[in-house]
Design a protein around this nucleic acid. Sequence first.
RNA 1: GCACCCAUAGCUCAGCUGGAUAGAGCGUUGCCCUCCGAAGGCAAAGGUCGCACGUUCGAAUCGUGCUGGGUGCACCA
Length: 607
Amino acid sequence: MTGAATAELDLTCALWHGLGRKTGFDQMNLFAEIRTTVLTALTEMQAEGILPAGLDFASVAVEPPRDAAHGDMATNAAMVLAKPAGKQPRVIADALAAKLMADPRITAADVAGPGFLNLRLATEMWQSVVKAALTTGTDFGRADVGKGRSVNVEFVSANPTGPMHVGHVRGAVVGDALANLLAFAGWTVTREYYINDGGAQVDVLARSAYERYREAHGLEPEIREGLYPGDYLIPVGEALKETYGDTLLDKPEAVWLSDVREFSTQMMMQMIRDDLAALGVRMDLYSSEKALYGTGKIEAAINTLRDMDLIYEGVLEPPKGKEPEDWEPRVQTLFRSTAHGDDVDRPVQKSDGSWTYFAPDIAYHFDKVQRGYDQLIDIFGADHGGYVKRMKAAVSALSNGRVSLDIKLIQLVKLWKNGEPFKMSKRAGTFVTLRDVVEMAGADVTRFIMLTRKNDVALDFDFARVLEQSKDNPVFYVQYANARVNSILRKSREAGVDVSDATLAAADLTKLDHTAEIAVAKKLAEWPRLVEIAARGNEPHRVAFYLYELASDLHGLWNRGNDDVSLRFLQDDTATSQAKIALVRAVGVVICSGLGILGVTPVEEMR
RNA sequence: GCACCCAUAGCUCAGCUGGAUAGAGCGUUGCCCUCCGAAGGCAAAGGUCGCACGUUCGAAUCGUGCUGGGUGCACCA
């Protein structure tokens, strides 16, 4: 643990320690600790000849049993080692159990079922988890699965042709939360936005803005078919007038296109940055597609592939089954992506010799590889699914397999309001903007709800339901749990009980011994493990689900105090109160920590 | 035609590198406030994990083949 962590903890969630990587802290992952203990015991058994040498322990797991009645933790060691060791599972399990029982932390080790070893841990172990959460604050749960390696998370990357819409929101939230999660799990994270400012769409933007420029001069704009009609371009036209006066009026496109394109793209990117800020998303880096042109970077990337014999001139087969009417065979420059797992080779140059969109994308990813990242992650919309294999193939080839690219496809968000499909076209013409969503639901609610589904499953977002203040609404439910934590702390202080974190951390936790209380401590013990699992799979939604479960446990314990007075947190005896409140506070700490990863502001009081 | 994603309780969804009797919420039924926030909690009922083979000591999870739904498929980005 870092020294700073214990210095000054306050009672709000302000103790959130940020997301930078930290080292040298005590991870306090009980499951990992016990697994180490199990592996040590297994190694001893090898030395004693009970087990043969040369066994692979990689698949030995220590995890929570499905049914709490089975114990606190279960290991499959005996079952996975039985075959390679040539022994009966029960023989191994019995010997392992005998060894583990010598450990004072383990109070029971029972062989069950086909060869599971169910372990029970001493109550002090769970009490120590509470203490750890209070002494390390929101650093509790930090993991080091990243081991300081660098990861680049590219997300959003919306075209700079207009405001961000709903379709971008989920990708932005998932990417940002994933970046937070990875940082918390020991990765060095870069958040990056790739600006698609090199293609035909920014020309369209320029032409659309030019019409608004004419409009600003009192002329009738000609928003032809194929131009962007949204009135968000009106201010761009006015700004153009401000900057260029009438010097661009009645001039051929060749004169103004480049300047207007640059000007409008800048303004669109500023709008997008503002949109992202409204959602609480901040990028570390904005990379430009256009900047790749004319620098030789595309050529360099393609030549690198060519040197590997992965580039050739050829003619693709027509797509089978649904052949386009105007299909005709063409000689193109192709990337042999099939050598790296793709289904067909992909064109990098059009038949007229200009680059396809894929070429600068290859160069861009090559650039990321050359910048030295150990891992790349792209967050794409689900409609880019057909792009995954070729992109992975390119990264695999360009990094000689050193860098892995994980692509997360984000499924659609369906908007609803009171059970009716929600459509809105306030200013953008035809779509619901990110601003619309944030203004109606708030950034915190939006972020949390967007993380209550796996990325590859479609998500329903009902404006009425997400704002509901009841347990139907997971955001509210978790926030309410945190508010209750703060409520208890308030009441305690009013009652004259010292509930500063320093005092709680030093509380006599042996008074925390009821099974209902220990059950909550066990849930807290799962937090570091959950962080590891979520980070390993790049699955931030797991954090949201965990927080819901933790909130549920707290609500449950709270209500048991209604029937059983001894379970109320505030007792006559100060020392007992402090022990119980330490547990409550520890739950609050983990909720703050988890919400921090999701990028959601914890509330201290419901109103 | 091919590729990718999805299919789990009436509904919406979790389910960890394969683990024991598959879990939540909503809805249904019945309970719990002189008591720290009932904005909450407890309990009951409810499932051939789309289908069929296969791998394994063990499959919702892995593989193959189907069925149904979504997305995408040369010279767009």
